[in-house]
Design a protein around this nucleic acid. Sequence first.
DNA 1: GATTTATATATAATGTTTTATATATAAAGG
DNA 2: CCTTTATATATAAAACATTATATATAAATC
Lengths: 180, 180
Amino acid sequence: MLKYALLGFLNYQTASGYDLKQLMDVSTSNFWHAKQSQIYTTLKALEKDALVVSHIEPQESRPNRRVYEITTAGQEDLKNWTAQPITEIESRKEKLLLKLFFSAQLEPEIILTELRLQKNLHQAQLEKYQTITKEVIKQFASSLDMQEDAKLWETTRRFGELYTEMYIRWLDETIENLEG
Amino acid sequence: MLKYALLGFLNYQTASGYDLKQLMDVSTSNFWHAKQSQIYTTLKALEKDALVVSHIEPQESRPNRRVYEITTAGQEDLKNWTAQPITEIESRKEKLLLKLFFSAQLEPEIILTELRLQKNLHQAQLEKYQTITKEVIKQFASSLDMQEDAKLWETTRRFGELYTEMYIRWLDETIENLEG
DNA sequence: GATTTATATATAATGTTTTATATATAAAGG
DNA sequence: CCTTTATATATAAAACATTATATATAAATC
């Protein structure tokens, strides 16, 4: 799947592995993230499959950049993928819930401390979605002149916002439940 | 992490790989799922680490069962893990959002069809959480006489409910957005 | 002046997860 | 009667993802 995230970005403009890591961190990390090492190895695999090509861009006083460009085959592959409907629900993995499920023997105070910490983290995250992420989308929309595309980007930001609000609500309910 | 899901269940009662797969499917699949093959290989690894022990339970007219039992070391490991706080936010992967993010070139009707399909799937899922999952928790609570533990199980079910309601709300918003 | 952060790529080793396959029998459904 | 579903375990192969490490320089911060 990372494959398509990378092709998706390269379909807008050429980019290095370093660029792509940063792009993902500020835009898709809400619903798709990757480590640097995976991005670099996946780009290499994409080039082997001729879905992208790269060339070295020499730099003075900075390490040289390997800049990737999507090929026609890459664009086709990407379009095929986006047209393919998803017919199931995505399954989640939530370590916190797993731990909670098996925490009956723990002191309630220990659980409560953890839930309160999570609340702080999610409140900070919510603010990021409402300020930084919103701003980043605006910036890209105007710098790339992609107001139409930005509407879709905004829906994914909105998901992050709603999700985090839901999470905080669930934490509040659960905290109250354990306190009472 | 699957390791702790398995230890967590075995801390309640002995079980075979087959049992554990079924248990997870009806209880934790909302926040932690695993394939049969991973469960069997992880159980084997746990036994190698002496966190569980197994013995064969012969059956007539059914394949023999390999029944696992948690060891004292396993119980300690589990307790250490539950006591260890999680200090970050869990990151999600949502294929649908990734696809949507890069779907600007697609016909809006194709996107809308997909979102409407997802709405149906999530509505069915919501009903499951509100009926089947709720009932399963009640059953386990009374058959194991674990009313206190069941309160925690219920909070995880509630997460699934809230999450799915949120998802449907986001789908509604997004559908309206693309229609308008 | 020393440390940290940012720029930039690359790969080895390890860990996690999925897909696929093999085997065998009984019960249930069409 | 035939097919599917349920019971039950096991492993190989592949795909996906994380952790760790190496290298090098400039800018920013303490």
